[in-house]
Design a protein around this nucleic acid. Structure first.
Lengths: 196, 196
DNA sequence: CCGATTTTGATGCGATCGCACCATAACACG
DNA sequence: CGTGTTATGGTGCGATCGCATCAAAATCGG
């Protein structure tokens, strides 16, 4: 039904306004009125589609995560057949803000971060995003015959933590894309010495 | 003069209230009235010591950083004479929320994070904190004869990014202290193979 | 010990917040 | 064709925000 598509487009239009505001000035700038202005709709419309501010924040985050996963799968898939080490690299690269799209997304994530720590509802949303990534990496490290890892799970966790660290440094402009990739490859070379 | 000591104690008392509020509910909860309540002083007093909200936020962050550096130097120094590799480990451990003090501090940092990206004033404060750490690590990696690093600077950057990643995962309760230390030691073993 | 300065308190103002209520198009469907 | 659901707009209310003003207590220097 075209009705639902319109509905979904509207919600997305408003959610994108939330993302822009959160990235630009933090969650406290995400007020019903500012979101309405940014999305160029009436405040009443924001209320209609999301009810109250809390569910607006939660929904916008859920949509951002769903978006991220779809884009990531498509981008990694578009690379064609990759060897496990190449896949590991591609997956980790997905966590780096290497284009404006991802940068904005991870800035938004960092705006939510503190809330993740205390708000049970948001904590739930945050937890749903990660473990799939970790087990994917673990299985890749386990499957790769050239890996000498005695503990694929530890190495998966380690690589994810490292990638998140690179992400933060890039957001702070203390690391640019090529530099971060150099550091990533440097640790991958140490981790998977025979396959690269 | 005792006057100045009192003054400094007052400022600290108020800044600590800012930290608690920011850690508990984010920067948007840091209002003049809430800070006053949390610090158990009048709102006017907060105004008196910090003027307006902006300088309150900036000053509280500066005090937090100064505090962190003092504590870190003392704690690392208290370990006595360490070999370079041991020092590297000690410095990196300082970045992990291994006690309540550090946890709260890094939660506060994450509350400020988004602002670091856009607010020039806060960006300045954030930038002042890091580079010393990096060059310290670099010189340690360079000085250590057992290090086979061909690029101490790259390895220093790499280790810092990794530590920040571990920090984030710990804050999210996706990694506990011992687990994070295991991952840290795992990468240090790979990085400094002969000295550990 | 007294005038000056520092420190603390109470209160008011304009702006903005989330949210609710009411009204009216637009469309769906029996 | 009429009726009920969906979609959009305008507006008012109580609470809270940052900040300023007025005022008094506490402390210090001569």
């Amino acid at each position: 039904m075209a009705r639902d598509e319109n509905r979904e487009r509207r919600r997305r239009q408003i959610a994108e306004a939330v993302w822009r505001l959160a990235a630009r000035e933090g969650l406290e700038a995400v007020t019903l009125r500012q979101v309405a202005d940014e999305a160029e709709v009436s405040m009443r419309l924001v209320q209609y589609y999301f009810g109250n501010r809390t569910t607006l924040l939660v929904s916008a985050l859920e949509m951002l995560n769903a978006d991220a996963e779809a884009v990531a799968q498509e981008r990694v898939g578009a690379l064609g057949d990759l060897s496990p080490p190449e896949l590991v690299r591609a997956v980790l690269m997905e966590l780096l803000p290497l284009d404006e799209d991802r940068r904005r997304r991870y800035v938004v994530h960092s705006a939510y971060f503190v809330r993740f720590l205390t708000d049970p509802q948001l904590q739930q949303v945050a937890r749903n995003a990660d473990p799939a990534l970790e087990s994917l990496l673990e299985s890749l490290l386990d499957a790769d015959p050239s890996t000498r890892s005695d503990d694929p799970r530890a190495d998966a966790e380690l690589l994810i933590a490292f990638a998140f660290g690179l992400q933060a440094q890039m957001l702070l402009d203390q690391l640019d894309g090529p530099h971060a990739l150099r550091l990533l490859d440097r640790t991958l070379d140490r981790l998977l010495p025979e396959s690269r």
